[in-house]
Design a protein around this nucleic acid. Structure first.
Length: 559
DNA sequence: AGGAGGTTGGACTC
DNA sequence: GAGTCCAACCTCCT
């Protein structure tokens, strides 16, 4: 087509803040006289119901600046527009005489509605819309289709489906070295009107504190650094990594870059497969590095195909549980206080409070640290709804990712995917395993820096003299624990058991007294009971154990 | 219908 | 460090 005069095209960045593996950008450059790379500052992401902490916003601004630099190096620039996409886009379609709009598929609920609306507006304006899957390894709709139209609910069944699908599509080729530039002289396209905003312009008055810098170049450099240690990559096992490591975090910390698409998951995946090929032996999902990418994919798949995935009510995969704090209207004041203490890192459990402090300061905490604080907030200690925790993570995490955040909160609260609610993380013991000296606590809670290691995880047990010497009086300089973990966790296991039972009843409807329900536990219990008696006689622990269970049962009844 | 297995608990025993 | 128990969950697969 030699006669083509050249079109005006928009490539709309939302996630996918990168030039590599960007099929929408490639398409936009094809046969275009003018390409307008845009990002829209949508007020939705700063509305009352959706908080973005200053650290993540800064990360986003850095990513946009980096993107702009890369475009400038190619004779183009990034145009940052302000307003609702539904208002902004029809205007520029007209003003810039746009022929085509290209973007990456975004499957989050808000994005799906937004993009459907924008597509219809584009059609009305005679603008062709082209979208591409590049934020996930696969088109999650394909995975669901292969599973008979339903998303797989276990990681293993998900892996099986993915294995059958073969390797993901290879990353797209790099964009041209010289790009068709946008015009400066059209309304709303002038460089001074479309620059990357400052935090002040947006209305942030806090100083960002996170030690991670946003952007594609940073992402690629970081990936290269971590992948250069091929033995480490090949042997990576997530559960073996140390949540208390902070001098050098024990994992790649690539999650914020994947969240914003500064790094392509397909590129990362390709690089991992290369290394696996070179190294004969390597770890496997779920614990391997590739397994981590597939966890992301798993939650994107289930999340995108489950209604109300980020809420308990109306969510088909989520167990309905009578949390103490389901919403602000019904929560009692104690639950309100507990939630506030948890968020602020003032629970009186140094391990929990250090993690929450790191979350505020860094915008990132290790996966197992997330487990600790999530279990503590929900089924472990406070019995507060996972949705409240999800909101806090949504605000504070750089890598906050809609489906992954919701999925993991449901996991940890034993609301979905995971159901062994009696496996409770101890806010004292768990961290101690990794960091007996309490270096991590001393780093993030300096008030405890002189507390002897013996008491660093339980400072309320330190004798007054020790507290005085450490210049940290419990109840004055650092809070007393807001709950007794051994009492609270036992009580909550009982509540969870009751909630599970209630859910079962609901599910079965009138057939509540079907023999199936009674027969199952009875059959399983018989051989085990005999075995237990035998070991109890030997160990002499039977009586103690039984008493504990009775106490626990009576507590449940008097509630 | 039943069994296996489940990314990463904790306490205790050997 | 591995194994067993706690008390019993769920989904998937055969």
């Amino acid at each position: 087509m030699a006669s083509v005069t050249g079109k005006a095209k928009i490539v709309w960045f939302r996630k996918g803040l990168r030039l590599h593996d960007n099929p929408a950008l490639i398409e936009a450059c094809r046969g275009a006289a003018h390409v307008y790379p845009i990002f829209i500052l949508d007020p939705h992401f700063r509305s009352a119901g959706y908080k973005v902490g200053v650290n993540r916003f800064k990360f986003l601004m850095q990513s946009l600046t980096d993107l702009n630099d890369s475009f400038e190096a190619r004779g183009s620039r990034l145009l940052v527009l302000r307003g609702k996409p539904e208002d902004v886009l029809p205007q520029v379609f007209k003003d810039w005489q746009v022929d085509e709009l290209c973007y990456e598929v975004d499957t989050e609920p808000y994005a799906v509605l937004r993009d459907a609306h924008v597509s219809s507006l584009a059609k009305a304006a005679n603008v062709e819309v082209k979208s591409f899957v590049s934020h996930t390894l696969y088109d999650t709709a394909d995975i669901v289709e292969r599973n008979g139209g339903k998303p797989p609910l276990t990681y293993q069944s998900f892996i099986k489906l993915v294995d059958k699908m073969g390797d993901p599509t290879a990353p797209a080729p790099d964009p041209p070295e010289k790009m068709p530039p946008p015009r400066d002289d059209l309304p709303g396209a002038a460089p001074q009107e479309t620059s990357v905003p400052t935090l002040k312009e947006i209305g942030y008055d806090q100083e960002p504190t996170a030690p991670f810098k946003g952007g594609e170049r940073e992402a690629l450099a970081r990936m290269d650094t971590y992948l250069s240690d091929k033995l480490w990559v090949a042997n990576f096992e997530k559960p073996q990594t140390d949540p208390s490591a902070f001098e050098k975090p024990a994992t790649t910390t690539l999650s914020p870059y994947l969240k914003f698409g500064c790094l392509s998951p397909r590129l990362f995946h390709t690089r991992l497969l290369q290394i696996y090929k070179e190294q004969k032996k390597h770890s496997e999902p779920p614990v391997s590095l590739r397994g981590q990418l597939l966890w992301r994919e798993f939650f994107y798949t289930v999340g995108a195909h489950t209604p109300n995935f980020s809420h308990m009510v109306g969510n088909t995969v989520c167990r309905q549980i009578d949390w103490r704090h389901q919403d602000a209207a019904t929560a009692d004041s104690e639950a309100e206080q507990h939630l506030a203490a948890w968020k602020a890192g003032r629970t009186g459990f140094p391990w929990i409070d250090a993690i929450m402090t790191q979350l505020h300061e860094w915008g990132w905490i290790h996966h197992l640290a997330r487990h600790s604080v999530a279990c503590f907030l929900t089924r472990g200690d406070l019995y507060i709804s996972w949705e409240r925790g999800q909101e806090v993570f949504e605000e504070l995490l750089l890598d906050q990712d809609h489906f992954i955040n919701a999925g993991n909160w449901m996991w940890l609260s034993a609301s979905a995917f995971f159901s062994q609610y009696f496996r409770v993380y101890s806010p004292v013991v768990f961290g101690k395993k990794y960091d007996p000296e309490g270096k991590y606590i001393r780093k993030f809670l300096p008030v405890l820096k002189d507390m002897p290691a013996k008491y660093i995880y339980e400072p309320w047990l330190a004798p007054t003299e020790v507290q005085k010497k450490a210049k940290c009086i419990i109840g004055v300089d650092y809070p007393r624990p807001i709950v007794d973990h051994s009492i609270a966790s036992k009580q909550n296991i009982g509540r969870m058991a009751a909630a599970y039972k209630a859910n079962k009843g609901e599910g079965e409807g009138e057939a509540a007294d079907t023999p199936k329900k009674a027969a199952k536990p009875r059959k399983a219990a018989a051989p085990k009971a005999a075995k237990k008696e035998a070991t109890d006689v030997v160990s002499g622990k039977g009586a103690k154990r039984q008493r504990t269970m009775k106490e626990f049962a009576s507590k449940k009844e008097t509630e």
